[in-house]
Design a protein around this nucleic acid. Structure first.
Lengths: 349, 349
DNA sequence: GCGCCTAACTAAATCGATTCAGACAGCGAG
DNA sequence: CTCGCTGTCTGAATCGATTTAGTTAGGCGC
C-alpha cells in the first residue's frame, strides 16, 4: 500500500534487491536491462504506488525540465484576454505538447519587474512583446535558447511579421475609395502615457515602438502613392489595447463636428477597430457609408461577426509554432519574417 | 568575468572563503548573517555573474517549486481561445503573480492522455473542466493541494457557479415576452458526438455533463412556472464551443420554414449566442424583432458590441482568484459556490 | 575572572534522481 | 582451454542547493 510519503526510487530498488541504476533504466532506457527485470520493476512500482522518477530530482540531475517559459511583456491578465497573444500561445502550446514539453507562463509586469526565481527552471524562453524591460531580459539565463517574437534580442533568434507591406496593402485598399477625411488610430506609440490626439511628427520621432512604426511607414508610403498629404491625416494614440481604454478616445473622435470627423479610420489593431465599429453602430452611423474602418491582426472576433472587419491577417498561431520549434531546436535559430494577408470585409469594402 | 558555465553557490562560497550555508543565507535569510558579510557575498555574486540559487536544485531540496499547474480539460489551443477559460486563467494568474508563483499550463488532451512527467514539479493543481479523464486525475500527486473548478474531485476543494438559478433567471426574463416558438441550443450535452437536433428526454437522461444539466433544469423550472410545455421546445446540441462547429447547426435552424423556426433561442454559451447573432444578421433577420437570443457566461465580446447580448454573467475571473487562493492555502479548502448576474442586452430586451 | 548567553558562522547530511565506469557471466571462435 | 565480446547489472559520484546541529568568539553581569 502506498504510504503517506511518496516512495523514492532508492527505496523501490531496495525492495526489489536491485540497484538504483536498474530502476532508473527501467523507466528511462528499456534497452539497458532484460525484459524480465524491467517487468518485475514496473510491477513492483505499481504495487507500491511509485509514479516514476521525481521531476524535480530528474531536472536537477539532467539539467532539463521539459518546460519552456513564455515571457509576456504585458501582464498575464491582459495577455490572456488579448486575441493575438492567445493565438500565439496556442501555436506555442500546440508544438510543445506534441513534443512532451509544457508551458510556463511568465509575466513581464511582475510586481518588482524581476523574473520570479522559479523561471530559471525552464529549458528555453520565448519572449513576446514590445519592450520587455532590459532588467528582465538580463535575468534570462544566457546559456538557454531564447526566441524573441515581434521584436529583437541582440544575437538571438526571432520571429517577426512583415508589418510595413501589410500596412501599405490595407491603406492602398482603403484609399481606392478616396476618403473625404482619413484618420489614424495608433496603439502605444509613445513611451510616456498619452491617450488621445497626437502630433504626427512626434509620432514618427518616438520610434521606440517598432511594430507601430513599421505600420505607420506602410500607411505613409500608401498616402504618398495616392497623393494624400500625410499632414492632413490626424492621428490619435491609445495606451492599451482594450475596449475600456479605447472608448473615450474614440468617443471623442466620433463627437467631432461633421466636417472634421473622419470617414475613414485606419486602426492599428482589430480591438481598436472593433471598438470603433461598436461605438459607431450605437450612434446609428452607417458602416461603411458614413464611416469606413480598417483593423490590423485578423483576429477571429472581427471575422465571425457582421459586418466583417476589413483587416490584415497575421498568422499568430504560426508565429507561435515557429517560435516553439525554434526554442526546441527543431528549427534553425534564425530570424524569420512572416507575410500577411489582406482580408476585405464589409467595414471597408 | 562570467565563465561559459554558470557558477554555483559552492564555487561562490569557495571564492569568498565562507561556507555554502552563509551564501545560501545571504540570499534566503538575511537575518542569519551580519550585514557586512551579506553585502560582501552579494557583491561578489554580482561580480561573478551568479544569479542566485538554482531553481531546480532549490526545488529538489525544499520540495517547493513556486509553480502551480492548471490542468485544462480541453486542448490548450481551445482553452486559450475560449473567453471563459481565458478569464479564469487571468484570475488565477493575478493571484499567483501577487504571491510569487508562476503558472504551468497542462492540457488534458495530451497525445497519450497522460500527464507529462514534468507536471509533478508543481506545488499544487487547479483542474478545470467537465470531465477530465480519470486516468489523468489519478496521475495527480495526491499529497499536493488540488482544486477543482466547475466540477468535483472526490474529497477535494472546488469552485462552482450556481448554474440552475442563473438559467432560471434568464429564461424567466426571456419568457416575459411569450415566444411564438422557443428553442434551446445545448453545449456538449452527450458523451457521444452529436451535432444537431436532439431529443429532450435523451438530453435529460445523459446527465454526465453537470453544468449543462443544471442549466437545463433552470430553463425547465422557468418553463413550468410560465406554463410553457417543455415538449414543445426543440433542442439542438453542439459539440464544441467554436464558431466553426456551431455554424452548420445554426444554419440548419435558421433554414427552417417560418412556422417552425424559433423566434427565441436560449443558448448555453455566449459563443453560441454570438454565432446565432452573426448568422441571423447576415440573413437580414431583425434582432430582436424576428429573433430573440440569450447567451450564457457574460464574456466581453458579447457586451462590447452592438447589439449587446442578453446573458447571465458568471465571474470567471473571480472563480480563478478563489481557486488560486485555495490552492495556495490562503483560503480554506472548501466548496465555493458563486452567484451570477443577469445582463439584459438588446438581443432579448 | 567565571559562567552564560547570543550572534555569527560552518560542517556535513540530505533532497531523489542519472550515468559513467566497471564487474561478472555466458558464449562462440580459434 | 583461453580470449574476447556481448548482454546485464551494480557502485558510487554527481547535479546545486537547504538546513540542522554545533562551534567559536565576544559581551555582559556579578
Amino acid at each position: 500500500m502506498p504510504s503517506s510519503r511518496r516512495i523514492t526510487l532508492k527505496e523501490l530498488a531496495r525492495h526489489l534487491g536491485v540497484s538504483t541504476a536498474s530502476v532508473s533504466n527501467a523507466f528511462n532506457r528499456p534497452d539497458q536491462l532484460s525484459h524480465a527485470l524491467r517487468e518485475r520493476i514496473l510491477a513492483e512500482a505499481r504495487r507500491l504506488g511509485y509514479r516514476g522518477p521525481d521531476a524535480k530530482a530528474r531536472s536537477l540531475r539532467t539539467g532539463r525540465s521539459q518546460i519552456v517559459a513564455v515571457l509576456l511583456a504585458e501582464s498575464l491578465t491582459y495577455s490572456l484576454n488579448d486575441a493575438v497573444a492567445s493565438e500565439l500561445l496556442s501555436g506555442i502550446a500546440e508544438v510543445l505538447d506534441a513534443h512532451g514539453h509544457t508551458l510556463l507562463l511568465l509575466s513581464g509586469r511582475q510586481a518588482n519587474d524581476r523574473m520570479p526565481d522559479s523561471a530559471s527552471i525552464a529549458d528555453g524562453f520565448i519572449v513576446y512583446g514590445l519592450m520587455p524591460s532590459p532588467a528582465l531580459l538580463g535575468d534570462l539565463p544566457s546559456q538557454r535558447p531564447q526566441v524573441a517574437v515581434d521584436f529583437d534580442i541582440e544575437g538571438r533568434a526571432s520571429v517577426h511579421v512583415d508589418n510595413e507591406p501589410a500596412a501599405h496593402a490595407i491603406a492602398r485598399h482603403a484609399l481606392k475609395t478616396p476618403p473625404r477625411r482619413a484618420g489614424i488610430i495608433n496603439l502605444r506609440l509613445t513611451e510616456r502615457a498619452c491617450n488621445g490626439r497626437i502630433d504626427a511628427d512626434q509620432a514618427l520621432l518616438s520610434a521606440h515602438q517598432t511594430i507601430t512604426r513599421a505600420r505607420l511607414d506602410g500607411f505613409y508610403r500608401a498616402f504618398d502613392e495616392c497623393g494624400l498629404d500625410p499632414a492632413s491625416v490626424p492621428m490619435w494614440n491609445i495606451e492599451e489595447n482594450t475596449f475600456d481604454v479605447c472608448t473615450p478616445v474614440i468617443e471623442a473622435i466620433l463627437d467631432l463636428p461633421d466636417a472634421e470627423r473622419p470617414d475613414l479610420l485606419l486602426c492599428m489593431s482589430d480591438r481598436i477597430a472593433l471598438t470603433v465599429l461598436t461605438l459607431a453602430e450605437r450612434r446609428g452611423l452607417r458602416i461603411p457609408e458614413d464611416l469606413r474602418i480598417t483593423g490590423f491582426d485578423g483576429i477571429a472576433e472581427g471575422q465571425y461577426r457582421s459586418p466583417r472587419l476589413t483587416t490584415v491577417r497575421q498568422d499568430s498561431v504560426e508565429k507561435g509554432r515557429i517560435a516553439a520549434r525554434t526554442v526546441l531546436g527543431l528549427e534553425a535559430a534564425t530570424s524569420r519574417l512572416l507575410t500577411t494577408e489582406l482580408l476585405v470585409g464589409e467595414t471597408c469594402p
